[in-house]
Design a protein around this nucleic acid. Sequence first.
DNA 1: ACGGTTGGAACT
DNA 2: TAGTTCCAA
Length: 838
Amino acid sequence: MPVARPESSDTRIIAHIDMDCFYVQDEVIHIRKYLPSELAEELMPMFTSLHLIPSLTLLTRSIFFVVEQRRQPHLRGFPTAVVQYNSWKGGGLIAVSYEARKFGVKRSMRGDEAKKVCPQIQLVQVPVARGKADLNNYRNAGSEVVSILARKGRCERASIDEVYLDLTDAAETMLVETPPERLDVIDEEALKSHVLGLDEDGGDIKETVRNWLCRSDADHRDKLLACGALIVAELRIQVLKETEFTCSAGIAHNKMLAKLASAMNKPAQQTVVPFSSVKGLLDPLPIKKMKQLGGKLGSSLQSDLGVNTVGDLLQFSEEKLQERYGINTGTWLWNIARGISGDEVEGRLLPKSHGSGKTFPGPQALKTIASVKHWLNELCEELSERLLSDLDQHKRIAHTLTLHARAYKHSSDSESHRKFPSKSCPLRYGTAKIQEDAINLFQAGLREYLRLYGVKTLESQSSGWGITGLSISASKIVAIPSGTCSITKFFQTQEQSCFSSKQSCSMLIQEAGPLSCSGTEGCSGLTLTEPEAQFLNEEIGIKHSKAHDESCSSSKQSHSMLIQEAGPLSPSGTEVFSGLKLTEPQAEFPNAESRTWHSKTNLCHQEEISKTSKEQGTSSVTRFFHDLYPSSSSSKLQTDQVEYGTSPLPSTSNLDRIPDSGVEGFPSIDHMEIQKSFTAEDVRIKSSAVPSLEKRQQRQKISKDKGTSSILRFFQSCSSSSLVTEEKSGSTKNTEASPFLAPEILRLRAGFQTMQDGIHMLAPVEEATINSHEQSSGQIEQRETWNYRIDEIDPSVMEELPPEIQQEVWAWVRPHKRAHTAKQGSSIAHYFLPAKGS
DNA sequence: ACGGTTGGAACT
DNA sequence: TAGTTCCAA
């Protein structure tokens, strides 16, 4: 419950922007991608105005249909809805166009019911991938909008289709520089604003609104609101122009009021809440309409206190409310009843977590471990893909993996429903690892579930239980600190991987018990168990822990910094959010670099990535793998393996390998992780100096350019003993001269020595504290300051690396060249693609 | 025995 | 912290 700011003199200007019928609209946009551009140009306005949303499969028919519509304009306003999984009773509606709503079509109807109520309704299906709904279209569409809205002020992405803006600064600036009263023309869209409390029944509404907007004798707050309304109108037009989405907005003095207002006039309209109208708005408002009060709390207010409208709340003292609902909620209730809310606009354009889930209602409930594994693998695959995408585009790493499930258990006696415990563990990157961990989490949960229930079970066959819902999610996503470099991140990842493996291992060994199919497989990605490797890990662990703590403790700060500092760093502030703009050198740079570490990538990684690359042509990570393994093994292989319970990773536990692995621990590092780290880093570095381009232009460029990368050149020069100081295309405004590695390596070597002498290892900070191992704090401080880049490594450093690594690096120096093949879309997409070649 | 999928956050 | 619960779109 957000803490309310006590003062009621809130002069902030907050906007809430809500995209109209978002899913429906996005189908329109979706279609646009597959239309010849000229035709799209001509048809899209009609699509938009009609809310007509032909799905891909209906495309041809719909084009004809639309042409018909053009000849008979009176047919416009076609009712439409989006459904998912239409096989059963026509699928569930998740979005309904405004036209269809007039027929009484409602969300959470089945497609068949909608047809009954409104026979002519057009039903469109949500895309399905991996047997589940795929919302990526909608996420991306939402991102498009956010990138536009974020131009005018602090922006918080509140959901897939909602945004809060803090326009206080923009409005104040405008009031000083170009107050509405001095404007010759007021934007038509702004004139269509609804201003609460303004009499709209009068003659010329627009004139009334114009007068209100331009009143020179207005309250200062109203003037600011007027500015906000103008800004928002402009933004909404911009959104429409650039994305063809319409949206509705509320402009008020706080989030709560703005949110309320945005819903008052839909679609494609905006509503202003002057301070003087707040009471009139709230008092008669049903309590359940308020955000946060739509659920149990609202019900409690109704049934326990007899509060049916917000106005009814006014009679209760703050103390009374606190006594009833606790100090926080009570205060909050007291405030919101008076229109007071200090809830701040957060300045966050990116989600804090990613999840992928599916329900298996009723008869579809999963009854075997094998089927659970299958679906978990699908879910994890999607999650992993999105995590890679996040890393690639935003340099963020998730740290926690959580599994949720819903289960039923029917047996002779009553209880048919029990809570399935959610389980979480540290997240390791790599699809196979996520899948492993997820399955282990599930089995730990299942064991607990059944144990608490008191059931003896057969191995993998259900004895009365069924899984009705599975979801896997990744959270604790933190941005990679910008000061760190690729090498650091490599070790960080190792540290993370190793650490998490240990943790999950111990946990799973303890808890998974007889149900565990894969046993200690959860550790199979664990590699740096060698003494020297461990030393490296722990060295880095110090830095890592520190960085982690910092970014955790000030996550808000770092977010806003990330966003706001993007200005100086990158020419367009929206870049941070809208995806990094890659330029030619970037496009191949990460690829080349990653080859170093990837030469021994195991099959499952190849498979995993090549699969992703089919769908994500714009990701540098996936592009790289696609380049490397254009004809790698089919995805079926891994799926089958997993389904039969065979891990794609070596089944031997790394714990077992410890004694005899020697330096060989090193080569089995997770190449995936390294590769990604580097890619993200490089993208960051390079992108910071690049002027923003149209996304489509970027993609074209990316696919074209295959030059020699700077890192590659560096290593080449290494091999010929000539040291190259790398110029970062002038973009890295990194001021501190980055030291070469030699000193660090010396320390590492010293570390090996020390370790071999049997002296205690340095442990990661938190552990060190707990265990109170002896350690030199001076040493720690030194190491914390490490900062270097992969391409600044002194060649002599190579000799310090374990032989296996050296071998890999040298092998990599000979670049694999691959014939360029343009990425092809699906056949249907290809068919509709403009023939204009580029 | 279901609206489904996703995300955020408070509380313990 | 991990896990649960609630809320919302």
